[in-house]
């Protein structure tokens, strides 16, 4: 964490104003997003509640893996494949 961000965090009023630094670390927010999403979904889907946490963690990993996979695929398409096409 850079020193310039520390005073901003100390002065932060949670809920009222946006979290400082979220603009730089926005991609990391997909982890709690996937986790809470999987929690809410699996609470309605698992037949045996004992399977809840393994199912939730598995679904979280699946969501994140799918997002990373799509990001890598699109990056390859845009940065590698499209530049190989003829200009005209």
């Amino acid at each position: 964490m850079s020193n310039s961000l520390l005073p901003t965090i100390l002065a932060w009023t949670p809920i009222l104003e946006p979290a400082p630094g979220a603009a730089q670390w926005w991609w990391a927010l997909s982890i709690p997003m996937a986790f809470f999403l999987a929690m809410a979904y699996k609470a309605t889907r698992v037949t045996d509640i004992a399977d809840f946490w393994p199912s939730t963690l598995k679904m979280t990993a699946q969501i994140l893996a799918a997002m990373v996979g799509i990001a890598v695929g699109l990056a390859l398409l845009i940065q590698v494949l499209l530049p190989m096409l003829p200009a005209e």
Partner: peptide, 14 residues
């Protein structure tokens, strides 16, 4: 799960 998503949203975006 649902309230976690809601509070995360408020913490991030205000």
């Amino acid at each position: 799960g649902v309230i976690g998503l809601f509070l995360s949203g408020l913490l991030v975006g205000g």
